[in-house]
Write a protein that binds this DNA or RNA. Structure first.
Lengths: 184, 184
DNA sequence: AGCCACTATATCGCGCCGATACATCGAGTG
DNA sequence: CACTCGATGTATCGGCGCGATATAGTGGCT
């Protein structure tokens, strides 16, 4: 997930870890935040895998003086990195419909192919509907055994599931309308 | 978190890993699910720490007999385990107001002291309010730069934050009413 | 001068996940 | 009767991401 997000952000411009983490926090920050303890190791990993490359001369003392800052590793995308991002954009597997993954993928939705967008949206809807039905069943069956707090939690969950399903329906309808508009 | 949940569930009756995971999935399952890859190692850890103990093969047990003398590790709480659970019940730290922790703690709310319940609820409210304000700001500032999908996601997040704050307010009001009722 | 907040990188332990493997049992299907 | 399928049950492995922590220069406020 972090890999996907980093690769996506680096499409705009080369960046260093701190900035990357900040941008991450801003754009998709309300749904998913990544810590420095995730960002820096991931950057190393991506570099080792050849998906990103450290811009030369950025970490030397000489350059630091010019910035007036501490050692600063700026990374840029490689050709392989771009290719990898393209692959990840095409993914519509189960991890794209759960809470963590869905928000991140949506952040790059305008760059993902229309059919993949559709499959992600529909997968997410199935997910949320399952959750909704599970909560409905729990609430119906509870009545006696479950304590007040759990019931309240289930009620909140049920309402938010219903709301998200409605939200997804609107998005899906919009996607369909757009496709109809393009093809005939 | 899993430690807390397992200790809490074992208060009802001795259980084995599979059942524990199932109960976990049912009661707080819609908000947090734990995998077997978490449950079994955690059980081992808790056993090593002396918080739970493996029940010796109770041959009179109906279930066990029917099942044959298969490898079925049933764990029960120790005195230290109960003590530990009591400590965790008293915790109202930051981890109890984020998404993962809050749901789990709420599942054991009827067993947590009233003042701790209050601090958790208020902490959670502060959390959600921050998120809500962040989303409000993002939506206000966006307008141009942010693409449609991100904006939609922010809109959904904002609405669900508002809803949860209202829900928390009701719970808090109820708690206060209960305390007034008890103290005069 | 003292203090605090922000920028910036890095590492460590560990909680938890998903995949996978293995084995038994009951029920339904051909 | 054999076959398969799904639920029950335990276990391990690699790997991701988190929170805490260390280090350090910069800039502003008092």
């Amino acid at each position: 997930m972090l890999e996907f997000a980093i690769l996506g952000l680096l499409h705009e411009a080369p960046m260093h870890g701190y900035e990357l983490r900040k941008r991450l926090h801003d754009t998709l920050g309300m749904f998913r935040t990544f810590s420095y303890g995730s960002v820096y190791p991931t950057l190393r990993r991506l570099q080792r895998a050849g998906l990103i490359a450290e811009e030369p001369g950025t970490a030397t003392d000489h350059e630091n003086r010019a910035w007036g800052r501490k050692a600063r590793r700026v990374y840029k995308l490689t050709a392989e990195g771009k290719e990898r991002f393209g692959e990840l954009l095409g993914d519509a597997g189960p991890q794209t419909w759960d809470d963590e993954g869905f928000g991140v993928h949506l952040a790059f939705f305008s760059r993902t192919p229309a059919d993949v967008r559709m499959r992600i949206l529909e997968g997410r809807r199935r997910r949320v509907e399952e959750r909704r039905e599970g909560l409905r069943a729990a609430l119906a069956r509870a009545e006696e055994r479950i304590d007040r707090y759990t019931r309240e939690l289930h009620r909140l969950g049920l309402e938010s599931s219903e709301r998200e399903v409605r939200w997804l329906n609107e998005l899906i309808a919009h996607e369909q309308a757009e496709q109809r508009g393009q093809h005939g």
